[in-house]
Amino acid sequence: MNMERWIECAVWPLSMALLVWLVPRHRRREAALSVIFMQFLAWIFGLIVVELHLLSYPVRIFTEATRTNLTFEYCALPTVSAIYNVRYPAKGRFWLRAAYAAAFPTVLAAAEWPIATYTDLLEYERWNLGMTWLSEFAVLQACYRFYKWFFRVSASSSKTARAKRMAVDTTGQNGGECQAAGEVGDG
């Protein structure tokens, strides 16, 4: 097995291990939602960049089914996004949040450079590292915005506040989504 295959095979268990290691047990659901939302974004954007001949993936899994890189779009990027969302310093100062938001695409772009240069896993056609950084920054931000909307995360929120809100939600006292849904369900 050549180096490209080794890398692709290693990404899947490595992603699982990172999820288990870096996502606390009580936040697995939040991580799961981040994973599926990022898959949604990665699927469509991955197809667009390949369709427009911006990038190509000469060595990949499912060579007959697709020209996109399923390992990166289905597994690696969603895993990174889940960790990004779960570990985001929502209560931190602006500079901390900015540094955090910049660090993830920087690390991803730094990891991508040797892959594009020394392996056949990725080839830039009309693409460059700057575009990688920008696109990854954009999709991570989009995923975090969705995550915030979904779980109603705000800068003032804390674990206690979230726990209280969930307790109120489940007992149906806040007249929010559960109650509205319950009314429709009964109808």
Binding site: G46, L47, I48, V50, E51, H53, A65, T66, R67, T68
Partner: peptide
Amino acid sequence: FPYATHQDF
């Protein structure tokens, strides 16, 4: 996406 994929997107 006929170039990028062969599956029914």
